[in-house]
Design a protein around this nucleic acid. Structure first.
Lengths: 203, 203, 203, 203
DNA sequence: AATGAATGAGCCTTCATTCAT
DNA sequence: AATGAATGAAGGCTCATTCAT
C-alpha cells in the first residue's frame, strides 16, 4: 500500500507548469512537450502521471479553485461582520497583493473557453460556479440582514456581483489598465456598497 | 469580359461560418476545413479570400462588434433619457430578444482567450474595450448628471458596469441557468439602478 | 489568319517576369501568381498564353540562350582573329558590362538544377551544351591552328574552358567576391592563355 | 532505465536518404514524406530529429563536405609533391573511382541553387567555398614555388581551377557524356598542367 | 519511475490549373 | 483576351499519445 512519495508531488509540479504555460499560450497551444519542459520533465512522464492532457486540465481547474479558496480563507481571517466577509470574497479574486498570481487570472480566462467547448470541463466549471454562487448568496443575505435590507434581493445581487467579479478578472487579464492599475478590487467594493447601501458604523 | 468580383460577400460568408464553428469549438479547434465546410466552400477558397486563419479571426472581431453596434443603435431608438440609453447599452449586450445570437456570445468568450495570447488580436480587443468604455462613461455621466449625482464617480461606475456586462456574457455562455434564464439583462438593470440610485419619475 | 498582335509580346513579357522571379526564388518557389504579378498580369492569363508553368521554363531557356547569343555576336563584332573570338565567347558569358544581367546568371544556375530533374528541360539543356561546345571547339581549333599548336588537344581544351565558364557563372552568382569583383572574365582569359600558350603579336 | 539515444545515427540515416532523394528530384520536390520513406522512417520522425526540412539540408551540406574531405585525405595519402596534392584535390572532386558517388555530385548542383535563394544555406556555402579556395591557393602556391613559377599568379589560377572544378561537377551531372565518360578528372589535370607548366621530372 | 523514440492523424497553407464570365 | 474565383492535391509541420528500454 506504500504510495510512491513523489506521485503527488509530480502531479502538482506538472499542474503548476501547465498553469504557467497555459497563461501564456492558451490550452490548445500548450503542448505536452512545452508543459513537460516548463516542469523540467520529459513528455513521456506527463503521460505517466496523467492519462491525458485533458486530465491535467481538470487537475488545473481544481488547483485554481484551491488557490482561490486559500485566499478567501486567509482574507476572511480578520473579517468581523458580513460586509467584511463579502469584501474578503472579492479580494480573494481580485486583490493584487503579494500572493496574487496574474498567470492564474489568465488561466481562468482560458479555462472558460475550454469549459464552453469540452463537456466535462464545462460540467466541473458549472459545479464550481454553483458552489461559489451559493457562498456569495449567503454572504449577501447576511449583509442584507445586518443592514435590515430586503433579503429577497440577495440572489440578483449575488449574481450581479459574481458576474462583475468574473468580468473584472477577464478585463484585468486582457486589457490591464482599463480598470486602473490594481483597483479592480476597490471598484468592486464600491459596487458592492452601491448595491447593499452604505455601511453601518459599528460602534 | 471579366468575372464579377464577390470578395465582400464571400468574406462575410466565411466570417459568419467561423462565428458558428468557433462558438461550438473555440478558435484553435475550428479548423479551416471545418469553417469552409460550414460555409459550403472548399478550404483553398478560404485562403483565397483571407491571408490566414488569424485574419478571419480579426474580421470576426469586427463583425461581432458591428453586431453589437447595430443592436445598440436599435435599442437606443426609443430611448428618451440617459437612463434609457444606458439600459439600451446593456440590452445590446445581454437582451435575449429575437435578434439575439447565443453563438455570438460564445464567440466573445473564446475571442477573449485569443486576445490574451495573440498580440494583434489583443491590441484590437483593447481598442474595442477602450471605445466601449468611453461610450459607457458618457452614458453614466449623463445619467448621474440628470440625477444630480456625483459625476466624479462615473469612471468607476462605468468600469464596474462594463466588467459586470462582460462577466454576464461569460456566465451566460458557460453556465447558462446560473443567471436565471434570460434575465441577465434585468439583473444588470437592477445593478445599474443600485449604482445610480432610483430613477426619477419623468412627469 | 490574323495573329493577335500581342500574343508574342505577352509571352515575352511573361518570360521576362519569370526570369526575374526565378533569379530570386528558384523555379519551384516561383509561383505562377508571383510571375503574373511581376509581369503586371493575372495568373489566369499566364495559362492562357502557356500551357503550363514548365512551358514558361522552356521558353525561358530559349530566351536565356538568345541573350547569350546576342552578346556573343556583339562582342565578336570587332574580333579580328581566332583568339579574340574566343575571348568574345568568354565575355558573352562573363563580362560585367552595362548589358550584363545578373538575374540571368542566377537563372542559369537554377535552370541547371531543373535540367537535372526534369526530363525535357534536361534534353533541351544538353542540346544547348552540345551547340555551345561545338562552337567553342571550333574557336579553340582555329586558335591552336593559328598558333601552330596541336589541334588534337582542342576537344579537351574546349571542354575544360566550357567547364570553367559554367563554374565561373555559378561562383559569380552564389559566392560573388570569391572571384574578385567583375574579374571572372579576365580570370578566364588568363586561363585561356595558359591553355593555348602566349598570344602572337599581330604586327 | 532510460532508452538508449540514437539521434546521431538517425540523423545520419535521414541525411543520407535526403542525399539520394535530392539527387533525383532537387530540394523543393524532395518532400519530407519521400525522404522519410527512402530512409524507411515516418515523416513525423524526421521532424523529431530535425527542426525543419531546411535543417536537414544544412546537415546535408556538412555531410557532402565531409565526403569530399575524406576523399581528399585519402587521395593525398600517396602524394609526394605539391603537384600530386593538387591532383588529389581535383580527384577528390571528380575521380570516378569505386568510392565515387554520382548522387553527391547531383546534390552539389541542386545545393548551389538553394544557396542562391536561402540566406543561411548561402552563407554556409560561401564559407565552404572560402575554405576550399584557401586550400587550393596553398596547393597552387606550393606547386608554383616548386616549379620556380610566379607565385603572384596563385590566386587567379586557384580561382580558375576552382571554377573549372565546379563547372565540371555541373556538366558531369547535367550533361554526362559532354566531358567524355569518366574523364572529367583527366581534363582538369590537363588544364592544371596547362596553367602551371609541364611537370618537372623528379629524378 | 523515467526516458527518449516513434507514430499517425490532422492542421494551415500554397499552388498549378481550370473555368465561368 | 482577360479576369478573378474556385478547386484539389500536396506539403511542411505539430502534437497527443504509446512504447521499448
Amino acid at each position: 500500500m506504500a504510495r510512491r512519495p513523489n506521485r503527488t508531488a509530480r502531479r502538482a509540479q506538472i499542474v503548476e507548469a501547465m498553469l504557467r504555460v497555459m497563461a501564456a499560450r492558451g490550452y490548445e497551444r500548450s503542448s505536452v512537450a512545452a508543459i513537460a519542459e516548463e516542469a523540467g520533465l520529459t513528455p513521456g512522464l506527463v503521460h505517466y502521471h496523467f492519462r491525458s492532457k485533458e486530465e491535467v486540465l481538470r487537475a488545473l481547474l481544481e488547483h485554481l479553485e484551491a488557490i482561490l479558496e486559500e485566499r478567501f480563507v486567509r482574507f476572511s481571517r480578520g473579517a468581523a461582520n458580513p460586509r467584511d466577509r463579502l469584501a474578503a470574497f472579492v479580494d480573494a479574486h481580485l486583490a493584487r497583493d503579494a500572493s496574487a498570481r496574474p498567470e492564474a487570472v489568465a488561466c481562468w480566462v482560458a479555462l472558460g473557453t475550454e469549459a464552453l467547448t469540452r463537456e466535462d470541463i464545462g460540467a466541473a466549471y458549472r459545479d464550481m460556479v454553483g458552489r461559489h454562487l451559493a457562498v456569495l448568496q449567503g454572504l449577501v443575505r447576511d449583509a442584507l440582514d445586518a443592514a435590515a435590507g430586503d433579503v429577497a434581493r440577495a440572489p440578483a445581487i449575488a449574481a450581479g456581483l459574481y458576474a462583475a467579479i468574473e468580468g473584472a478578472f477577464r478585463l484585468a487579464a486582457i486589457a490591464p489598465g482599463v480598470i486602473p492599475e490594481g483597483s479592480a478590487a476597490s471598484t468592486l467594493h464600491a459596487m458592492t456598497d452601491g448595491l447593499l447601501g452604505p455601511r453601518e458604523e459599528t460602534p
